[in-house]
């Protein structure tokens, strides 16, 4: 019983991180129909920027995260401007290859700047607390609370503000949005900014319980793709729900099936889903 609650909490924590990464991915997909393979590199850079600000300039954890959000968000915008915008009218295969190019570049860059070593990030929240008979570290609690707060903020932004509603409008109908006077370029940049910011938050929150290294984004991004296919490409609630589903499945699978193969669960899940629903779980019949 004790193990089960522990694992459920673990699943919740992993799920929070997945959801945040998948949210950024799904927003970009919803609006620009780009499967941004470089999103994992943004996640990785988010962790490095936070780590560097803390180690090099002795910034406080929260300030470091804020810097990371800005830096990675702006990098996202830069990507949109320099790469995806010029490719707007190209066949979809080009976007994918360009995104892969960016991914390779950013990873090599991280390796050059920070080296290939695995690093740890220590935070002021290492202490252990006892909740309902299970022991957990503060950092894990922080991840969950942080993720929920970010999701709520994102929800209000998308639903209650004008800028947010332009994103929704454009996701639903790019051409229509253009016709009613929405500046589609601005919205695209804004979306990449948010997407990058979310990746930075996810990485900075989870880095203390994981390790920081140039390839840390690989698995996360692959799983995020699984999640948004699970939850419907472009769907915000789908990304959140899918993230938690995968988180729980993995942590329970690791305990009760095999720790070696826990990473395969996501891919097997995806292969099964796409085998039966080639357009994802919640595909609508297109016009």
């Amino acid at each position: 019983m004790d193990i089960l609650t522990q694992q459920l909490f673990n699943g919740l924590t992993i799920g929070s991180v997945y959801s945040l990464v998948a949210l950024g991915l799904t927003l970009v997909y919803g609006i620009l129909h780009i499967p941004n393979f470089a999103h994992g590199a943004l996640y990785m850079l988010g962790a490095y920027v936070t780590l560097t600000s803390m180690l090099l300039w002795n910034f406080n954890y929260w300030l470091a995260i804020a810097i990371s959000i800005v830096v990675v968000g702006l990098l996202g915008v830069l990507m949109e401007r320099l790469v995806f915008n010029p490719l707007k009218n190209s066949p979809p295969i080009h976007d994918k290859i360009a995104a892969i190019g960016i991914l390779l570049f950013l990873e090599a860059l991280a390796q050059l700047v920070w080296g290939a070593d695995y690093r740890t990030m220590s935070t002021p929240y290492g202490e252990v607390v006892n909740v309902f008979g299970t022991t957990l570290t503060m950092q894990r609690v922080l991840i969950n609370v942080g993720a929920v707060i970010v999701m709520i903020l994102l929800y209000f932004f998308l639903k209650k503000t004008f800028m947010g509603s332009t994103i929704i409008a454009m996701a639903q109908n790019r051409k229509g949005a253009h016709l009613v006077g929405i500046n589609t370029n601005k919205v695209a940049m804004l979306t990449f900014l948010i997407s990058g910011g979310l990746a930075a938050i996810a990485a900075s929150l989870s880095a203390p319980i994981n390790l920081v290294f140039p390839g840390m984004g690989h698995l996360v991004i692959l799983k995020a793709f699984v999640i948004i296919i699970l939850g419907g490409m472009g769907s915000v609630p789908g990304a959140i729900l899918g993230g938690y589903i995968l988180g729980f499945t993995e942590s329970l699978g690791a305990t009760y099936i095999s720790n070696d193969y826990k990473d395969v669960i996501a891919f097997i899940l995806l292969i099964i889903i796409l085998s039966f629903k080639p357009k994802g779980l919640f595909s609508k019949e297109g016009f």
Partner: peptide, 10 residues
């Protein structure tokens, strides 16, 4: 190679 890939495709 990364940027090359991206630039070539553009």
């Amino acid at each position: 190679f990364g940027p090359m890939l991206t630039l070539i495709i553009i």
